[in-house]
């Protein structure tokens, strides 16, 4: 347990398993207008419609039962409060897992995201066989694109017509980082 705690801990955040009691905070931040279209929740639940508490419970249940995936709560250490979620899916191949990270908008631009991403990447590159860690975001999500690039990810392509937003088609931007690239970023 001590080893696990250290792997998933950083200076200001730690990642832990979700518990049923987390449903209220999850329900609240997923409904924040700023997260519309970028919730990173199971495909079967809307990414933009208002979510009920029952749907938030269903998300936690799906995450708890998911195979070859993990979904962890991001907790701010000083408040001991859940401020977001970190996902990882290696169902296709553990060589190239896919990750996503969501923080409640009140906690953006305070360094929590960087710490959570560093924990995720350290875990995947130091404790699993991951070689390429990938992710993605809508093309309009400029903050996420910049965040990924700041942390060593490269844009690997554009899947066209991934969605519709404000009357216009949107594309999906894929990003990835290779183990040697991450080692270079970490060593810099």
């Amino acid at each position: 347990m001590k080893i696990n705690a250290e792997i998933f801990r950083n200076e200001n955040i730690f990642l832990r398993a979700f518990e049923p009691d987390d449903v209220s905070v999850l329900h609240a931040y997923l409904n924040h207008p700023a997260l519309t279209g970028r919730r990173y929740i199971p495909w079967s639940i809307s990414n933009d419609l208002p979510l009920s508490r029952a749907q938030a419970e269903a998300i936690l249940e799906k995450w708890a039962k998911a195979e070859k995936q993990f979904h962890l709560a991001v907790v701010a250490r000083d408040m001991e409060k859940v401020i977001g979620h970190a996902n990882c899916d290696w169902g296709w191949d553990p060589h190239c897992p896919h990750i996503s990270l969501v923080l409640a908008p009140d906690y953006h631009r305070q360094g929590y995201g960087s710490e959570a991403l560093n924990v995720l990447l350290s875990y995947l590159f130091e404790h699993t066989q991951a070689h390429n860690v990938g992710g993605g975001m809508n093309d309009w999500n400029q903050a996420a694109r910049a965040f990924a690039q700041e942390h060593g990810f490269s844009e690997s392509g554009t899947m066209r017509r991934a969605g519709l937003r404000n009357g216009e088609f949107s594309d999906w931007i894929g990003v990835d980082i290779l183990r040697p690239e991450w080692q270079a970023v970490k060593g810099a």
């Binding site: 191949d93 060589h95 190239c96 070689h131 390429n132 990938g134 490269s154 690997s156 392509g157 554009t158 899947m159 066209r160 894929g174 990835d176 290779l178």
Partner: peptide, 20 residues
């Protein structure tokens, strides 16, 4: 070609890019 995830396919003893 829309998306090319680097070195994410291993087949026949070689690494390839996954392509969408």
């Amino acid at each position: 070609l829309s998306y090319r995830r680097r070195e994410s396919i291993f087949k026949g003893g070689k690494l390839y890019d996954n392509v969408s």
